[in-house]
Computed example of a mutant assay.
Amino acid sequence: MKKNIYSLLKGKFLTSNGASQNWVMIFYLLTLAIVTIGSSHSADQKVHEIAKLNNEVKELRSIMIDGRGQLMKLKKESYLEKKMGEKGIAISEIPPHKIKVKSQKE
């Protein structure tokens, strides 16, 4: 048992006669480890980008809601009356009349 552990620690399995198969396996496992680490980093970057985009969506949504509220305020008749009153334009006391135009074909 001790002898096997010492030979493993000394790396005799890499220098013995059948070592070429061991080297192939080591390179294969090393390649798999590099691919796994790379895909993990890629997934982490995507998670961070998604979180950043979600924060941006929340910020843009709050700006949109604020803009919608301001638009509703600007569309109110009382607000328009006040702003036009500052410019000297008042609401007419006489209601508008419909103008009917008869076509010449009749």
Rank of each mutant, 00 (worst) to 15 (best):
E93A: 14
L8M: 07
T15P: 01
H41L: 15
K100M: 05
H41E: 14
D44Y: 11
V35D: 01
M72Y: 12
K12Y: 13
I99A: 04
I91T: 14
N4T: 11
L71S: 08
S42Q: 07
N55E: 05
E106G: 15
E86F: 05
S7Y: 14
P96G: 01
S16V: 00
S92H: 01
M64Y: 02
S40T: 12
M25H: 08
A33K: 07
Y28R: 14
S62F: 03
F27S: 10
K100G: 01
V47A: 05
V47G: 00
S62Y: 03
M25E: 12
K102S: 11
Q70K: 11
K87Y: 04
N54Y: 04
M64P: 00
L8T: 07
E81F: 02
N22E: 06
K82P: 03
N54D: 13
V47R: 15
K98Q: 10
G67A: 13
D44C: 05
A43G: 05
K105S: 14
S42I: 09
S40N: 04
I91S: 04
L80H: 10
V47C: 03
L53N: 09
A33I: 10
L30G: 08
K76S: 13
K73A: 13
L14F: 02
T31L: 12
K58F: 13
G88N: 02
K73N: 14
K73H: 11
E59R: 12
Y6L: 15
I91Y: 00
K100A: 07
K10A: 07
I26E: 04
G18M: 02
H41A: 07
L9A: 13
L71K: 05
Y79S: 03
E81D: 14
H48T: 08
F27W: 12
I26L: 15
Q70P: 03
L80T: 05
I91F: 00
S16T: 03
S62Q: 08
Q70R: 10
G38R: 04
E77H: 08
A19T: 04
S40E: 03
K10I: 09
I63P: 01
R68D: 08
K3N: 11
P96K: 03
A51I: 03
R61W: 01
I99W: 09
G69I: 03
L30D: 06
M84S: 10
I63T: 02
E49D: 10
V101Q: 07
E56H: 04
A43N: 09
L9N: 10
S20G: 02
P95K: 09
Y79H: 08
K100L: 12
H48A: 15
K82S: 07
G18T: 11
S20N: 08
S16D: 14
H48G: 00
I26S: 02
R68Q: 10
G88S: 02
Y28V: 08
K10Y: 05
A33G: 06
S16H: 06
A90S: 13
K3I: 11
N17K: 14
K98L: 13
E59M: 09
S92W: 01
L30S: 13
A19S: 13
K52R: 11
L30T: 10
